[in-house]
Write a protein that binds this DNA or RNA. Sequence first.
DNA 1: TTGAAATAGTTAGGAAGCTAACTATAATGT
DNA 2: ACATTATAGTTAGCTTCCTAACTATTTCAA
Lengths: 167, 167
Amino acid sequence: MLQLRDLPTPGILGKFAERYPDADVTAIASFLYLLRVATDLSLALNTCLSKHDLLQGRWWVLILLMREESTTSTPSILADKLGVTRATMTGLLDGLEQSGLVTRVFAKEDRRSVKIQLTSAGQAKLDVVMPDYYRRLRQCMQGLDEEKRVQLQQLLGLINQGIPALI
Amino acid sequence: MLQLRDLPTPGILGKFAERYPDADVTAIASFLYLLRVATDLSLALNTCLSKHDLLQGRWWVLILLMREESTTSTPSILADKLGVTRATMTGLLDGLEQSGLVTRVFAKEDRRSVKIQLTSAGQAKLDVVMPDYYRRLRQCMQGLDEEKRVQLQQLLGLINQGIPALI
DNA sequence: TTGAAATAGTTAGGAAGCTAACTATAATGT
DNA sequence: ACATTATAGTTAGCTTCCTAACTATTTCAA
C-alpha cells in the first residue's frame, strides 16, 4: 500500500504548496498519516498471521466460511466478499485445499458450481489463530477508550464520503 | 492490503466474541474500518495516478527526487525512504528511466554508486500530476475541518503507539 | 427447441513486490 | 599491505495479485 517511510516535513509541504497552489497541507498530512498507520497495521497483522502459516488472503477466506451457518460457500461469493477476482480466489483456495483447511465439493444442483467447505482442520486452525489475533488487537487498541473509538469511526466515515472525489 | 469488502455486522462480531472471549468488538470494528477506508483511499489514489501513466511506487520516487535541492539521490537512499528493497528500487528506476523521467549518472567519487537525477520530463510530469492530485485530495478531505484533522491525527497517533503490541 | 447470452470456475501470462545470491568497489584491521 | 568485511547495485527466482481468454453449464428468447 503506502510504502513511503519518509512522510513530508512541514517544510517540504510548504515548499510543494508554493509551487502547487492547490495543495492543502493539513489535508495532505492527515491523508498520508492515515495511509501510513493503516499500512503499518496491515504489515503487523501479516507478521502475526505468518506465525500461523497464514497470510491475510487465506485467513479471510477461512473467516468468511466460518461466518456461514453451514461453514460453506462458493468461490465466486467468496471472491466478491473478499474483493478479489475469481482467478485470485482459485489460487487462494488451491493453497487452502492443499493445506487441508477447506475442501471442494462439486454441487449437484448446478454443475458449473463448486461448494467450498471449511474442514475440521480449518476450524481448528481458526481456533488457534483467532484468540491470538484478538488478544493482540485488544492490546493494540487499548489506548483508545470507547468514546475515542466512536470518534475515530465518525472521522473515517467523513473521509469515506470524500473518496469518490479522489477517483 | 485489506481486500475484505464485507465487514462483519454486529451480529457476526457477537457470534465470534462468544466463541473467542478475547475479542474486543469495538476494537475490531474500529481496526477493520480503518483498514478499509485506507485501502479504498489507496485504490482511489492509484486510479488517479494511472490516468497519468503512473502508479504509487514510481510516483513516490519522482516526489522524493523533487524534494531534494539537487533533484538527485541514489537508489539505496530512495529505497530506504520508500520502504522497499533495493531490488525493487532497481525495477522502479528501470521503468522511470525507460520513460525518460529520471536518468542514471555514474558517480565519480564512489564508483559503486549511481546518482539518480530527475529529468526535465520528470519535473514536467510532476507539474501535471501534482496539481491534479492536490485538487482531488482537497475535495476528498473537505468534510473535515482543521479541528477534526487534528483530532484524527491524534487518534491515529494513539493507534500507532499500539502497533508493536500487534506484532 | 435450439442459438445466443450469461454465469462458474480455471488457466495463462503479466506487474510489482520480496529474498537470496551475485559483482564490483570501498573501508577496515591486523 | 592485504585479507576481511561492509556497501552499492543488479539479477534470478518466488509470491500474489491482476486481466483476458478459455471450458463447461445454464438461462433466455425467437
